[in-house]
């Protein structure tokens, strides 16, 4: 039944698929995860501050991000970021941002909302006694957070954070809406150029599956390695 299929097209296009496509996908995943964790942690601290001045904007932001379709966000940011950039830098014409930067900003801001909720749960999982102990030793709020609470919260949450990263890895394929070539985009281009839709899409699916499966195995191993001894 496979007689009519040409799996050779996969071999021929491998360099393009991986050098162009996968590099973009992995780079975007990695950078957006890093940015998302940093921004998300700040948002989590704002939400937990107990001060309406910090809490309310952070809560509004998280709720907004979580209730708008992601594809819409990608679109919207792509067209909006140049104008925001123009407004910030006060330049006469819209800022040239580029598709990658635009994607990176969108993904970082979007993921930050999810990482915020994860880190919030992580911070709340640290017993209050730990805070009291740090304070009793004379640590200020930033020191308590930086040396005692966040390192523990982060370690407890690494499995969840990385699982979210795997979801993000799959979500990067949504950049097709602004015609950026990620792994799936590259596969799609070849598929349409050579008329090999079934082969290319099947191959792409297999790769996504393998990477995600491998990553979740790694997460499980890492979880054992970094767990805090109790």
């Amino acid at each position: 039944m496979f007689a009519n299929f040409d799996f050779d097209v996969i071999l021929r296009s491998l360099p393009y698929l991986f050098y162009q496509g996968m590099t973009f996908t992995l780079l975007l995943t990695a950078l957006a995860t890093l940015g998302g964790i940093v921004v998300g942690t700040l948002l989590a601290l704002m939400r937990l501050s107990g001060l309406p001045f910090f809490n309310l904007p952070a809560a509004a932001y998280v709720n907004l991000m979580r209730s708008v379709p992601f594809v819409l966000m990608i679109f919207w940011f792509y067209f909006l970021v140049p104008y925001i950039g123009q407004w910030i830098t006060r330049s006469p014409q819209p800022l040239q941002v580029g598709a990658f930067a635009s994607c990176l900003i969108t993904f970082t801001l979007f993921e930050a909302a999810f990482f915020c909720e994860i880190m919030r749960a992580g911070i709340q999982s640290i017993p209050r006694g730990q805070l009291a102990a740090a304070q009793a030793l004379g640590m200020t709020y930033p020191k308590t957070m930086g040396y005692i609470v966040l390192p523990q919260a982060f370690r407890n949450m690494v499995p969840v954070l990385l699982t979210q990263t795997i979801v993000l890895f799959q979500d990067t394929s949504l950049v097709y809406v602004i015609s950026v070539t990620d792994f799936l985009g590259a596969a799609s281009k070849i598929a349409q150029r050579d008329g090999r839709l079934v082969e290319m899409y099947t191959f792409a699916a297999c790769i996504y599956f393998l990477v995600s499966l491998g990553a979740s195995h790694l997460v499980r191993q890492l979880q054992h390695r970094i767990a805090i001894i109790r």
Binding site: P127, L137, Q152
Partner: peptide, 15 residues
């Protein structure tokens, strides 16, 4: 607080 030591019921060492 840095000048007053405190010991807690549940130790509260940093794990």
């Amino acid at each position: 607080r840095a000048r007053i030591g405190m010991v807690f019921q549940h130790f509260e060492l940093f794990p």
